[in-house]
């Protein structure tokens, strides 16, 4: 794969969704966006202006938005419900379970403000449980791209793959890791580095941190295998099993350490009966108003802690 050498450019992954959905809406008239008032923030305004006939805004009524999307899906539409992650997961969780997952309808939930990225909005708006909630629902796919370009590719794949899916984006700008030609497959981890001493598995906005940590470890002579596990369900089990040849795995996620990427990886490791895992993520506690970087630091989701945790595992 090709990794941009010195990533300096940054873009919020919600922008990736907003740009890609316009392209998809033009190609396929069945692509719909169901907004829940916050279209401006979720970057769906361009879609709304370009394709008013494929756009619905239900106002501040998430549950109804979910049900309406399911109704659209029964007629062959491919609705993308667009809102913030905390509402798109928890406020409409039961509606998505009953009306999208249970009947296995082609409903996509596309959410900005994933994880701690809505830092200054405070703990009420930071989505730390969302991927875990959806991971437990049968038929559901759960995805978070690491940067702008990978998010665009994953949104495109989601639109062209049948089934209910949850896609999560960042509010804040995150570094661009991939170039626009990089291809992604839902459920297939992207290997960023191959190594033999320690494996790091990250997703979403933590992939860049993991990449920096890996480079620092390499400078200290430690060989790192690094995976971008953009899809946590279905999990690329094979890729995790391959990490067991190394046997030492650090997971990194901008999500509660319960029931997200770290848990998914740990399940495989436990079932295989070998290897050790250290989970870096939100420490099962609510956030507060603070800069995103400060909140990440409070939870130990930092380059320094990834490096330290990898070294601890090696000793």
């Amino acid at each position: 794969m090709s990794v941009t050498n010195t990533p300096v450019a940054k873009k919020a992954t919600r922008e990736g969704f907003g740009d890609e959905i316009v392209k998809l809406g033009k190609e396929n008239k069945n692509i719909y966006v169901v907004d829940i008032d916050i279209g401006k923030s979720c970057k769906t305004t361009a879609f709304m202006n370009a394709f008013p006939n494929q756009h619905v805004n239900v106002g501040i009524a998430e549950q109804n938005g979910a049900g309406l999307a399911a109704g659209l899906a029964t007629t062959g539409k491919i609705p993308f419900i667009s809102t913030y992650a905390v509402f798109g997961s928890l406020r409409m969780a039961e509606q998505i379970r009953q009306e999208a997952c249970y009947p296995n309808l082609n409903v996509k939930i596309a959410c900005s403000h994933g994880g701690l990225t809505p830092g200054n909005d405070g703990g009420s708006h930071q989505a730390i449980e969302d991927m875990g909630v959806y991971r437990t629902m049968p038929n559901m796919t759960v995805i978070m791209g690491a940067d702008y370009h990978s998010t665009r590719k994953l949104v495109e794949k989601a639109a062209n793959t049948y089934g209910p899916m949850y896609l999560r984006f960042t509010r804040d700008a995150v570094p661009m890791i991939y170039d626009e030609n990089e291809e992604f497959e839902i459920g297939k981890a992207k290997q960023l580095k191959d190594g033999k001493d320690v494996a790091i598995i990250a997703n979403g906005d933590t992939v860049y941190l993991a990449l920096q940590a890996a480079e620092q470890l390499e400078q200290e002579g430690i060989s790192v295998k690094l995976l971008d596990m953009h899809t946590i369900k279905p999990l690329d089990r094979e890729a995790v099993v391959e990490c067991l040849e190394i046997g030492k795995i650090v997971t990194v996620e901008d999500h509660n350490i319960l029931n997200g990427l770290g848990s998914a990886v740990s399940e495989v490791v436990a079932e295989e009966g070998k290897g050790k895992v250290r989970r870096i993520g939100v420490q099962d506690r609510f956030g507060e108003s603070a800069p995103y970087e400060k909140l990440m630091e409070l939870n130990g989701i930092t380059i320094e802690n990834i490096v330290a945790t990898a070294k601890e595992l090696l000793n």
């Binding site: 619905v56 549950q63 109804n64 938005g65 979910a66 049900g67 309406l68 999307a69 399911a70 109704g71 659209l72 899906a73 029964t74 007629t75 062959g76 539409k77 609705p79 509606q95 009953q98 009306e99």
Partner: peptide, 14 residues
């Protein structure tokens, strides 16, 4: 409480 929303989606599609 959920069915009416689905019905609205179907009617809107029509």
């Amino acid at each position: 409480g959920q069915g009416l929303s689905c019905a609205v989606g179907m009617a809107l599609a029509a």
